[in-house]
């Protein structure tokens, strides 16, 4: 009966595997793609899979002070399309979006669109430093303790975050005239939409629905 000792062969076989460092062979994608490309679809949409609230649910109501101390209630905006942005002074994505959020408010003024920002739970001084960056022509609400942010946070949104009050940092929602969430995204760090192109599209769709 033939008996083959494979021991030296293993040495040879392993030599093959051991010495080849993985080469970082990468195929370039289209030139300029990183520059200003807005992907066709926002990629982190809050859907039913993440739990409530999600697109299709009624937006939770809130009553929070703005930068002048004036109370703002979401339910009082019924009849208008509402853009709701969760912002934070510390977040570079939020910082990059900030001028585009102000521009959105300017561009849609007089079209029955209310743009509202909610400062994520952070110290008063940091909330003030967000306001100090550029003139904000929209209410920036102070959500001390993060209760409102939590009421908008579905369990599956960044479920790995230790601090749940921060799961919605740089999240954007579009709420229709009946108070139903029609657009809800979390920040996508790979396909970042600083110019709020997707938010604008969602607002435009709702405005077109109502005018039609």
């Amino acid at each position: 009966m033939a008996r083959v000792s494979l021991y030296p062969l293993f040495a040879a076989a392993l030599a093959l595997a051991a010495c080849a460092p993985p080469s970082p062979a990468v195929a370039p994608i289209a030139a300029g793609a990183a520059e200003d490309a807005t992907p066709a679809q926002p990629s982190i949409v809050v859907t039913e899979a993440m739990g409530s609230p999600h697109v299709g649910d009624a937006a939770p109501d809130f009553d929070l002070p703005d930068q002048q101390g004036k109370r703002v209630k979401l339910s009082e905006a019924r009849g208008s399309v509402v853009v709701l942005a969760f912002v934070a002074s510390f977040c570079p994505f939020s910082k990059a979006e900030q001028p585009h959020l102000a521009k959105l408010a300017t561009d849609y003024a007089g079209r029955n669109v209310k743009v509202i920002a909610i400062g994520i739970n952070e110290p008063e001084a940091d909330y003030r430093s967000y306001l100090a960056r550029i003139p904000m022509n929209l209410p920036v609400l102070r959500d001390e303790g993060g209760k409102v942010a939590l009421s908008f946070t579905p369990p599956g949104a960044q479920s790995e975050f230790k601090d749940r009050t921060k799961a919605l940092v740089t999240s954007n929602l579009v709420i229709d005239r009946d108070g139903t969430i029609r657009f809800f995204t979390l920040v996508d760090t790979v396909n970042f939409d600083a110019k709020l192109v997707h938010v604008r599209r969602a607002v435009d769709r709702l405005l077109a629905d109502h005018s039609g």
Binding site: R3, V4, S5, Y7, P8, A12, A15, L16, C19
Partner: peptide, 14 residues
């Protein structure tokens, strides 16, 4: 059958 090469197997394969 003894698979014992006269020269180090790993050397040639490497």
């Amino acid at each position: 059958i003894q698979v014992l090469a006269a020269i180090p197997l790993w050397a040639c394969c490497a």
